[in-house]
């Protein structure tokens, strides 16, 4: 199984494996090439791993033409160049903040406030709605796959629940 298939089938385990395999080399390279401290290099590296996952899930990366390390290093490089333009040299880096910044920039038309509200609403929504919506709207999983994975009765049940969950999420969003 190649890396893309592994990321799709067992993301959390694969991302941790990838991190552990490349971390030393990647952080050394970041420190030498971009003059960052170890902690900052590690935060950038973690963010890049999650962005790699995002590229696989959203279909931006469907096939690797080079080694995965090369692809990952290009994400790191782009991210650091982008960050160097916007941040103060003195401030330390945090993976969560970098990741939020990436998403906020990508959805320019949506205000950060609304995006955060949607985030909070999703947390309040809880399970199983949270997983159901993530599988459907982020991972683009088909109804029959979700039905099997979550053990629902049939596709109609899953579809109805998904709509209910979406309406519930909207309700919480406006509270």
């Amino acid at each position: 199984m190649n890396w893309i298939e592994r990321i799709k089938s067992d993301p959390d385990k694969t991302l941790a494996t990838l991190y552990n395999e490349i971390q030393d080399e990647a952080t050394k390279w970041i420190k030498i090439e971009f003059g960052l401290q170890s902690d900052d290099a590690d935060e950038i590296f973690q963010t890049s791993i999650v962005l790699l996952y995002d590229n696989v899930v959203t279909g931006k990366l469907t096939e690797l033409t080079a080694h995965i390390k090369t692809y990952l290093f290009s994400i790191i490089k782009n991210k650091i160049i982008h960050l160097n333009r916007s941040r103060s040299k003195m401030s330390s880096l945090d993976a969560t903040e970098i990741l939020q910044g990436v998403i906020d920039e990508e959805y320019e038309e949506i205000s950060s406030e609304d995006l955060n509200k949607a985030n909070t609403a999703l947390m309040k929504l809880g399970e199983p709605c949270k997983s159901l919506l993530e599988l459907s709207y982020y991972q683009q999983m088909k109804l029959d796959e979700i039905t099997i994975l979550l053990g629902y009765k049939n596709n109609d049940t899953t579809k109805n629940l998904k709509y209910k969950c979406m309406k519930r999420l909207q309700k919480i969003f406006f509270e």
């Binding site: 995002d54 939020q100 998403i103 959805y107 949506i110 609304d114 995006l115 509200k117 949607a118 985030n119 609403a121 999703l122 947390m123 949270k130 919506l133 993530e134 709207y137 982020y138 991972q139 979406m166 999420l169 909207q170 969003f173």
Partner: peptide, 10 residues
Amino acid sequence: TLKAGIRKQS
């Protein structure tokens, strides 16, 4: 917005 929030949270 909700779809973007789902992605961000994921």
